[in-house]
């Protein structure tokens, strides 16, 4: 029984690598819009590229740029990005037993923990293929995400006025596309609708960036409290 998975390995490996490149190309394409939105918001090309190189988690990058673009402070923007990145910690938890990291591999792997690489570390026939799925997808997305960001950032510099070409609608549309696959079931819909209402209601009352933090606090308190009531059962 043992040699069998290995006999299939070349085929499994090329399938994983093919998927990794396809996912990298797709995310690279939306890095174009990130690069464009970020520079349209007023970040320099260098700042935009540093975000993709160092932060490297799409939703957080969009959030940071979105809060800054709306006139929010740097601390609020950073806090929003970090809160949105909290799911990566959970992904890491799931990944650590699969990847069996030692030494310098751990900080390196941590950098590649994102939605796409985590998704590709699940569901293959062997752990070996799952591990390859993680590393190959992480690497492929990293390279193409950064190439896409640079091209998008340079592209907008050639534009006359980002607002005139509608680029201020790009970030909320991108969030919508990121949100859609997460909203499954009544509870998730309720969370999404309530968050939008609370945030909107807070706009005239709080400085820019405040509404997002109010929503985050509420989500944390309600999320933690809800669990206590269902633990009783």
């Amino acid at each position: 029984m043992l040699p069998e998975p290995d006999a299939d390995w070349p085929r499994a490996r090329s399938a994983v690598l093919r998927d990794a490149i396809a996912i990298g190309a797709a995310t690279g394409a939306y890095a174009l819009s990130f690069g464009a939105v970020a520079t349209a918001t007023g970040l320099s090309v260098l700042q935009t590229c540093v975000l993709s190189l160092v932060m490297f988690t799409g939703a957080s990058q969009y959030a940071l740029v979105g809060v800054l673009g709306a006139g929010g402070g740097g601390l609020t923007a950073a806090a929003t990005a970090v809160l949105l990145g909290s799911r990566n910690a959970l992904y890491g938890l799931r990944l650590s037993s699969l990847l069996q990291l030692r030494g310098l591999h751990r900080p390196l792997a941590a950098h590649l923990v994102i939605d796409e690489s985590t998704a590709m570390s699940l569901g293959h026939e062997s752990d070996r293929a799952n591990r390859l799925g993680f590393w190959a997808t992480g690497a492929s997305v990293y390279v193409l995400w950064n190439v896409g960001t640079l091209i998008g950032a340079l592209g907008t510099q050639a534009l006359p006025s980002p607002r005139a070409v509608g680029l201020d609608a790009a970030a909320p549309a991108a969030f919508l596309a990121l949100l859609a696959p997460r909203v499954r079931g009544r509870a998730a819909v309720t969370v999404a609708v309530a968050a939008a209402l609370v945030a909107t209601a807070c706009v005239p009352l709080l400085p820019v960036g405040g509404p997002v933090l109010v929503v985050a606090m509420l989500a944390i308190v309600i999320g933690a409290a809800r669990r206590t009531s269902s633990e009783v059962r």
Binding site: P172, A195, P211, V212, A216, A219
Partner: peptide, 11 residues
């Protein structure tokens, strides 16, 4: 629920 709430609020 945090990402759902934050994304929706940001939209």
């Amino acid at each position: 629920i945090l990402p759902i709430a934050l994304l929706s609020a940001l939209i």
